[in-house]
Simulated assay, not measured.
Amino acid sequence: MAEILMKAAAFVAIIFMGYLLRKKGFFKEEDFHVLSKIVLKITLPAAIVANFSGVDLQASLLILSVLGLGGGLMLITSAYLAAGKNREEKAFFMLNTSGYNIGNFTMPFAQSFLGPAGVITTSLFDTGNSFICLGGAFSAAKMVKEGEGKISLIPIIKTLVRSIPFDAYITMTALSLLHISLPAAVITFSEVVSGANAFIAMLMMGVGFKISGDTSQKGKIVKILAVRYGV
């Protein structure tokens, strides 16, 4: 337990360090986007590849992808019902209540505390969650705001295909189910790069941490958080 608490404290310390470095001018606000690109396009995909490699994936675990999608749909529906009658407010609630930040936040913890098994199960959950985060919630909110009667799947699919972590999820899941292994050089390279994922992800959150808004928004924020954590 002491080791787990120390590691968790180290993560919090890295976030705090990123925040202090930005306040001191070491990082600029726009550096958050650079760090985000490094995580989402380099270190996170590498972590997925490294942890999936050599694992005999059971087909029954694919139910986690269904849970990821179902959880997002449940949050969108709850947000729609909890908001007022105003279309813009409903759309605002739907966008800010749904989805789980798996890649930037959950994955570093799963990678550090739970090892390959944690990364694989989290990745499978995020495969379903990606349909919500990478276009599903936005499309549903737009439909509600504009009063349209349908959700367009084509933009969602295009966004998913362009997402490197999602492509890594799908590719590595398929290879694991087919019992196909990547070359040793690819796995070794991925393991080295993935070692930086947790650190850069935590540092990125510290650099990007910023509180904004006015007092009139506090009521909506409290209501959104109540719906999200209540569900």
Score class of each variant (00 low, 15 high):
residue 113 F to Y: 13
residue 114 L to V: 05
residue 117 A to R: 11
residue 117 A to W: 05
residue 118 G to F: 07
residue 118 G to E: 12
residue 120 I to G: 03
residue 120 I to K: 00
residue 122 T to L: 08
residue 122 T to M: 06
residue 123 S to E: 01
residue 125 F to E: 08
residue 126 D to R: 04
residue 128 G to V: 10
residue 128 G to Y: 03
residue 129 N to Y: 07
residue 129 N to F: 04
residue 130 S to Q: 12
residue 131 F to E: 02
residue 132 I to T: 15
residue 132 I to N: 12
residue 133 C to Y: 02
residue 134 L to A: 10
residue 138 F to R: 15
residue 138 F to L: 15
residue 139 S to L: 09
residue 141 A to Q: 08
residue 141 A to P: 06
residue 141 A to W: 01
residue 143 M to Q: 11
residue 143 M to E: 10
residue 143 M to V: 04
residue 144 V to E: 14
residue 146 E to H: 04
residue 149 G to N: 13
residue 151 I to W: 01
residue 152 S to D: 14
residue 152 S to R: 14
residue 156 I to V: 03
residue 156 I to Q: 00
residue 157 I to W: 02
residue 157 I to C: 05
residue 158 K to H: 08
residue 158 K to F: 06
residue 159 T to P: 00
residue 160 L to Y: 00
residue 161 V to G: 00
residue 162 R to G: 04
residue 163 S to H: 03
residue 163 S to D: 10
residue 164 I to R: 03
residue 164 I to K: 12
residue 164 I to E: 07
residue 167 D to E: 10
residue 170 I to W: 01
residue 170 I to M: 13
residue 171 T to N: 01
residue 174 A to V: 15
residue 176 S to N: 04
residue 176 S to W: 04
residue 181 S to R: 12
residue 181 S to C: 02
residue 181 S to N: 14
residue 182 L to V: 08
residue 183 P to Q: 11
residue 183 P to T: 11
residue 185 A to S: 15
residue 185 A to F: 14
residue 186 V to M: 13
residue 187 I to W: 02
residue 187 I to C: 09
residue 189 F to A: 15
residue 189 F to G: 11
residue 190 S to L: 07
residue 191 E to G: 15
residue 192 V to F: 12
residue 192 V to W: 06
residue 193 V to M: 12
residue 193 V to Y: 07
residue 193 V to F: 10
residue 193 V to P: 11
residue 195 G to C: 07
residue 195 G to Y: 10
residue 196 A to Q: 05
residue 196 A to M: 14
residue 198 A to T: 07
residue 199 F to T: 12
residue 199 F to W: 05
residue 199 F to C: 06
residue 203 L to T: 09
residue 203 L to N: 04
residue 204 M to E: 07
residue 204 M to F: 12
residue 205 M to V: 08
residue 205 M to K: 08
residue 207 V to F: 08
residue 207 V to M: 11
residue 208 G to F: 02
residue 210 K to T: 06
residue 210 K to D: 06
residue 211 I to Q: 03
residue 212 S to C: 01
residue 213 G to W: 04
residue 213 G to E: 06
residue 215 T to K: 14
residue 216 S to K: 12
residue 217 Q to K: 13
residue 218 K to Q: 09
residue 219 G to P: 00
residue 219 G to V: 05
